[in-house]
């Protein structure tokens, strides 16, 4: 197994762990952290797949994608944290109600 494959498989593992956390845990802080783990997994896959050249020179495009992706993830996390605080102050708990009971 090459290094790139190891990184890509680790990325997919992180992606799955993150999605699992997003669905499994009720607390919003855990959901937001899980979303960041998912994002880290995707970015790892993107960066790992960058190694394409035979002489080992990495492809710069995926690196640019990852940087853009991280910026987007930071913005999304910021908005999610603010919303979480407002949900917590409006309902008294940082959790989402069961959609069936709404």
């Amino acid at each position: 197994m090459t290094g790139a494959e190891l990184y890509a498989l680790t990325g997919i593992a992180l992606f799955v762990i993150g999605l699992h956390g997003l669905i499994r845990y009720a607390h919003l802080m855990r959901k937001i952290l899980a979303l960041n783990v998912t994002g880290a997994g995707v970015f790892l896959v993107v960066a790992a797949l960058a190694e394409r050249g035979q002489d080992g020179t990495p492809d710069p495009v995926p690196q640019a994608l990852v940087i853009t992706g991280i910026v987007v993830a930071v913005a999304a996390t910021g908005l999610a944290l603010v919303l979480m605080l407002r949900v917590a102050s409006a309902t008294g708990r940082a959790e989402l109600p069961d959609p069936r009971s709404e």
């Binding site: 997003l22 999304a76 919303l83 409006a90 989402l96």
Partner: peptide
């Protein structure tokens, strides 16, 4: 600004980012 709107927005944000 209502609690329902805030939880609706939160759920929507998590879904759309995921």
């Amino acid at each position: 600004g209502t609690p329902e709107a805030l939880t609706g927005a939160m759920r929507y944000l998590l879904v759309t980012v995921a």
